[in-house]
Amino acid sequence: MNHTYKKIPMPIRYLINTALIALLLYAGNAVISSGITNRAQSSLVLQVGIYIILAVSLNIVTGYLGQLPLGHAGFMAVGAYTCGIFWKSAAGSALPAPAAIVIGLVLAGIMAAIFGVIIGVPALRLKGDYLAIITLGFGEIIRILIINLSGITGGTPGLMNIPKRSSFLVVYLAVAISCIAIHMVMKSRHGRAILSIRENEIAAESCGIHITYYKVFAFALSAFFAGIAGGLYAGYQGLLTPSGFDFMTSINILVMVVLGGMGSMAGSVIAATVLTSLPLALQSLNTFRMVIYSVLLVIIMIFKPSGLMGTYDFSLSHLLEKLLNIRQPRENSPAQTADKKAGKRNG
C-alpha cells in the first residue's frame, strides 16, 4: 500500500537546471545573432536582464528581510561608475576583454557592497518609513556626490566613451549567476536567519540570531548585486549620467518587486521582464502607453495584493516530480502529502 513519492535526487536536479540554463543561452544567442530581432528588441533583452538583477537583488531586502529601502538606484550608480571607470581605463591596457569584464563587474559589486555596509549600519537601526526616508536620502547623496566629483565621474554631462561590453552573453551569465547565488544563500542557514528577522525579530534574536549582522549582511548582498547590474548598465549604455540614477529608478525597481510578489524570486524575474518590455510592446498605442501601464499596475494590486506570485517560487524539478507521480494512485497519508508540500518550497 505504501507508494512512495518519486523524487528527483539532488545532483540530477542541478543537472536539469544547468542544462536548461545552457539551452536558453544557446537559443537566445542564436535568435539574436540570426538577425530576426531589430536593434530595439535586442537592446531590450539586455535591459530586461539588468532589471532582473536589480529586482531580484532588491527582493533580498524587501521580500526576504522585510525592510523598505528607497535607495537601490544609489547602489546601482556606485557599481555603474566603478565599472565604467575601470573599463575605460582598462581599454588601452593589455588586459584581455573577458578578464576586464569579470574584474570590472566584481569590483562594481564590491564597491556597492561597501556602500551598502556604510549605509546599512546606521540605516538599519531604523524601521519602516524611517528606513525608507533615510535610504532615500542616502541615494540622493550618492547622486549629488557623482555630480560634484566631476574630476572622476564626469559630473553632470556624464561619463562618456565607456566600452560597450554588455553583450547578450555577459548579461545572460550575470543574470544566471546572480539568481543562482541569491537562491543558494536564501536556502541556507544564512537565508533562514534573514527570513526569521522578517517573520519576528524578537523571536529571531532569542533563537541566537545576530540581528544587526544579518540585516547589514542582507543589505550588503543586495547592494552587491545592484552594483553588478549597474556595471552591466554602464557597459550597455556606454554613457553614464547622474540623472539615470534618480529616485524614480529606485521606485521602478521597487514596483517590480512588489508586483512580482515580495519574497518570490520568480515573481521578481517575471515582473522585471514584463514591466521592462511593456513600454516597447505598447509603443504603437503611443500616448496611451503610460496610462495602460499604470492601469495595469492598479488592477494587479487590487486583485492580487500579494503580487503576481505571492511568496511562491517556481521550481522546475518539482514540476517534473509532479509529472512523474501523476499516474500514481492518490493515497494521502499525512507524511506523503507533507512531503509534497515540502517539495514546493525547497529547491
Partner: peptide, 14 residues
C-alpha cells in the same frame, strides 16, 4: 512568536 510564514521544520532549523 513563531516564524509563521515558514514551515515547521524551518522554524526548528532557525
Amino acid at each position: 512568536r513563531l516564524f509563521k510564514a515558514l514551515t515547521v521544520e524551518e522554524n526548528v532549523q532557525i
